[in-house]
Amino acid sequence: MRMAAWLHTLQNSAFSAWVVGSDSIWAYPMILTMHTVGLGIVVGAAVIVDLRLLGVGPGVPLDEVKRLFPIFWVGFFINLVSGVMLFVSEAADKATQPVFLLKLSLIAIGVAVTVRIRRRLFGGGGASILAASGVRTLAMGSLFVWAGAIVAGRLMAYLK
């Protein structure tokens, strides 16, 4: 119950009123757009890592795939910040929305899978890591989990 009260305090704050109530395109529309920019960067970087591990672009040295992780984290940071802003403005409503909780779970899994893939790549072993079926399973799982997170996020507008 204390949690619910706290969520309502967030949702009724001046900041929330500005995000959802302002007519300015710098409020809700720009935060939402930044969240989509971040989505493109996060999923874009993850897709390239996953496809490379699944055998696309064999001419790309595996060592160079590591350069995509900082890009991934930049996108993730953009979406963490914009996502928290969007959440706060509707905290009490979103916190109990099943499809939002599904989206958060999928993002948590996606990040965990990405961290595991990163660890495999930085662990050395060169091209031999591609022969390990575990890496391919992680890459395939990553593609499906991020697609699922996108769908869950989109359906938040419909499944209240």
């Binding site: 874009g44 970087a45 697609a147 996108i150 769908v151 989109r154």
Partner: peptide, 18 residues
Amino acid sequence: CESIHFIGLGLLIGGAGY
């Protein structure tokens, strides 16, 4: 269609951006 549109966005930005 929206869900597909956003997944397509990720593939497009990923492949072209790289």
